[in-house]
């Protein structure tokens, strides 16, 4: 018997992003970072990163300043809620529609 394509035999998934699609579309509110208040941005060095730690979807970068991958950010708002400097605001997605276009 010819060797079988094992991969076609069973369900074995390979790792990759976006299994759930571009989950950024789930968002109702968008996190916007105020760099005037953001601690690493202000200090211009690696610091704080509370938003990075708590983000359930690992869409916040551990960079100075932190950035948010909006392609996949689901807009939960945990980063805004937990930011010790109050630097992240959740802004209604609809207000970006014109801007994005």
């Amino acid at each position: 018997m010819a060797p079988k394509e094992f991969c076609k035999m069973l369900s074995r998934s390979k790792p990759g992003p976006g299994d759930g699609g571009k989950t950024g579309s789930w968002r109702v509110l968008r996190p916007v970072i105020d760099l005037e208040k953001c601690i690493p941005a202000k200090k211009n060095k690696k610091a704080c990163f509370t938003c990075w730690l708590y983000c359930p979807d690992s869409v916040v970068s551990k960079t100075v300043p932190p950035s948010i991958n909006l392609e996949y950010c689901k807009g939960c708002g945990i980063c805004a809620e937990e930011c010790p400097a109050g630097a992240i605001e959740m802004v209604d997605e609809s207000s970006f529609i014109v801007e994005d276009k």
């Binding site: 790792p15 990759g16 992003p17 976006g18 299994d19 759930g20 699609g21 571009k22 989950t23 789930w26 968002r27 690696k46 610091a47 704080c48 990163f49 509370t50 990075w52 730690l53 359930p56 979807d57 690992s58 869409v59 551990k62 991958n69 392609e71 996949y72 689901k74 807009g75 939960c76 708002g77 945990i78």
Partner: peptide, 23 residues
Amino acid sequence: ILNLTEEEFVHPGNRACSGCGLS
């Protein structure tokens, strides 16, 4: 927070609910 590895083992864009504690 600062010394925690940046390496991620979970891809973004998965099907967990928004704000999921398990995530």
